[in-house]
């Protein structure tokens, strides 16, 4: 226990590092997200992530949003376990045909008002996989998309700006 406390105390608050110039952009962006969300969702935005056929690269970067450097939750943005709790669906991958019905049902299970963000090149335009016997291609081919965040995969910073894009749009 002493070791844990010592490590915790000596590591300190990493999120403060955004005050350094190189990460200033993120801090500004985060605050802006917070203001936008406050206006519409009273400080809380629930995101349900759906992998509809991704290679898992985008998931790794979405995970990073919760690490101590980005800590997206401090801006009132949090990931939830069910589409029924969600305001936003964050969809990755080309939509594989085997996931098409599952994605449609997830979309239907999300209460209104809801938004869909397509994350990563595959979700935005089909990417490396495109359309085939096994793939429906981009997410917009299956459900309506409000915001697209390109990249292969998009970095955590780009993901944050994408969410901001939705709030402005």
């Amino acid at each position: 226990m002493f070791r844990i406390l010592k490590k915790t105390l000596t590591t300190g608050m990493l999120t403060e590092r955004f005050k350094f110039p190189k990460d200033a952009e993120l801090e500004q962006l985060g605050i802006e997200i917070k203001q936008q969300i406050d206006r519409r969702f009273s400080g809380s935005l629930a995101i349900r992530q759906v992998d509809a056929g991704s290679c898992n690269g985008c998931e790794l970067e979405i995970h990073a949003l919760n690490n101590p450097y980005y800590d997206i939750e401090r801006f009132g943005i949090h990931f939830v376990a069910s589409p029924r709790h969600a305001d936003i669906l964050l969809v990755t991958g080309p939509v594989s045909r085997h996931m098409q019905t599952a994605l449609l049902r997830t979309y239907d299970a999300t209460p209104n008002p809801k938004w869909v963000i397509a994350v990563g090149d595959c979700a935005v335009c089909g990417g490396e996989f495109g359309e085939s016997y096994a793939s429906c291609g981009k997410v917009a081919n299956v459900i309506p998309v409000d915001v697209t965040i390109p990249g292969c995969p998009p970095s955590p910073l780009v993901l944050m700006s994408g969410i901001l894009g939705l709030m402005k749009g």
Partner: peptide, 26 residues
Amino acid sequence: VHKGIEKIAEGRTPESLARLAGRVSG
């Protein structure tokens, strides 16, 4: 998440196959 990787690999150039292989598992 079957995306037909083996099928869409056919006919690719070596460079293009390397890109696809890099996305078999991110």
